[in-house]
Design a protein around this nucleic acid. Structure first.
Lengths: 154, 154
DNA sequence: AGAATATCTACTAATTCTATAGATATTAAG
DNA sequence: CTTAATATCTATAGAATTAGTAGATATTCT
């Protein structure tokens, strides 16, 4: 239920990219500075986002990251799964690759499985209805209200 | 989004109580044995459930625990909150007692707050729509199918 | 009095999460 | 061709949370 730091940083970084409007190339360093995220940690996060196909990167001088695709097509669920890995309430409640829970005698005997699979799907539904576009919109509203940059710039 | 062991054990224990039908008194030891839960750990869990008003207890010989109220009135949300404490995606996204997140300059400047508050409420909605009665029903179905006791009895 | 139970507090062990370190590869520019 | 700025990758350390254990006390029934 609690958003992990990885998740939070991923949302901040992607929103920062999204708020740039046209797909511009932004370095890890810039994002880290502006959003107060440890640079080396952000490295790993952006790498995970890249593996998931949510951002593109270019190396070398003047390299950096760019959003891959429109913010409206990038759900909270996809973002969090990219950095935190797939998540089900119980190992056996993963709809795609159900695993026997360590304590259960077998998949079939776990009576929590059915309910928890449904719960997990309902939770995913929540995360999949919110997109990066929503986050960007909110961030810009907030920026307009305060007259300040996204998060920390004063 | 992963169910904690405390949460899982709480659900199992309460379902065990609920499946007894009429509010009968059951000892920690019996629940622990039948559901394969470490006894001392279960102690703490039942104590938390008692503090939250979800179970009653009686001490002394022949003492034990009883459900407080009907299973249909006991939501998954209430159960998990009792053992794991209140939970919001971010500290600032708690609808009742919002706290400044460690990294944020202030509550007002956090543009994640609005979205995350909504997400948290949607997630709570999911947990509050499922009750112990649902779990008991599922458990009994499972039991009928396999001809076995709730979880482990063979 | 004795046996079986719940209650309470403190502590230890295991696991997961967060962050850092350091080496390598790539690219642009001078 | 050298330098500077960047991404990439793997390993590890440090911190925090979760899971589980231990032991003493209080209560109740027989």
């Amino acid at each position: 239920m609690k958003l992990s730091k990885k998740g939070e940083y991923a949302l901040r970084a992607l929103t920062y990219l999204g708020a740039r409007g046209a797909p511009s190339v932004v370095s890890i360093q810039e994002i880290a500075r502006q959003e107060h995220i440890p640079k080396k940690f952000l490295e790993q996060i952006l790498l995970a986002l890249k593996k998931a196909g949510l951002v593109q990167s270019s190396r070398g001088k003047a390299g950096g990251y760019t959003l891959q695709g429109a913010p409206a097509g990038m759900t909270l669920g996809a973002i969090l799964q990219a950095v935190d890995g797939p998540s089900a309430p119980l190992p056996c409640a993963n709809p795609h690759a159900p695993l026997k829970c360590p304590d259960c005698p077998s998949l079939e005997h776990c009576w929590l499985r059915g309910v928890m699979t449904e719960v997990g799907e309902a939770l995913n539904g929540v995360f999949n209805q919110i997109t990066l576009a929503d986050l960007c919109r909110r961030a810009e509203e907030s920026q307009r209200r305060s007259g300040q940059a996204l998060m920390y710039e004063i």
